[in-house]
Amino acid sequence: MATKASRTAARAMMSPSVILLLGWMLIPLALTLYFSFLRYNLLMPGGNPFVGLENYEYFFTDPAFQTAVVNTLLLVGGVLVVTVVGGILLALLLDQAMWGQGIVRILVIAPFFVMPTVSALVWKNMFMNPVNGLFAYLAQSVGLEPFDFLAHAPLASIIGIVSWQWLPFATLILLTALQSLDSEQLEAAEMDGAGPFARFRFMVLPHMARAITVVILIETIFLLSIFAEILVTTNGGPGNASTNLTYLIYAQSLLQFDVGLGSAGGVFAIILANIVAIFLMRMIGRNLDA
């Protein structure tokens, strides 16, 4: 873009998509904000009077609210821990030369291509079901009482299911990072007297820091809005033991038909997401600097 003419042309070319994207983001955001200040219930037609912060008050004092926030953070944190740690271990494993490497790599990526509803259903009915599930069968075959995962450990079960879906993503990104590590560096460390664990701790892990940061940031964006897995498996229950913020907003705006309350929840979700983003960038953002 050297000349003034080409810069002008570039701006003219880009403007339709920029305007479209802006509209796509700003109009729903503005409407959500607007609705959150109205008493707007689909079961009560008629005027939608302006009620100020009433919706927010109801949302924050809802008994499920605190649980939902805690569950959201537990879900994000739990899945992040499992996928990052598991992803590093799997990446180390897949980086070894072995027979059938190509097929194993494809198999490892596979879970990522299964849509969330399907994978959650498979887990719910084929693995975790206390009567017909594989886990129940395994428990019985060694003489144990079958464990009803979704009833007694609903959030942990969902963390497990979501981790299974996101593990391939983490593995893949971390594997490519691992492969870009200069082998001479590892050899130099070996000559310098670093054993396998020291090489991992001082060479491999710092080298992967940036990739780990990317995995954490991208996963956080998607994990804050986990919904399908909860809807399909536990419906947020038992009680509200597996309700996260997304599911709570869904329950209020679509099960109770309260658009105003749901919008208030949505605005809070945006704020929570930004708080999480700020903390994340504070903690690990410097890894992204070259």
Partner: peptide, 12 residues
């Protein structure tokens, strides 16, 4: 002790 062609310094 070895000095490598790429120097193999630890970048971090």
């Amino acid at each position: 002790a070895m000095v490598f062609q790429s120097y193999a310094l630890y970048p971090h």
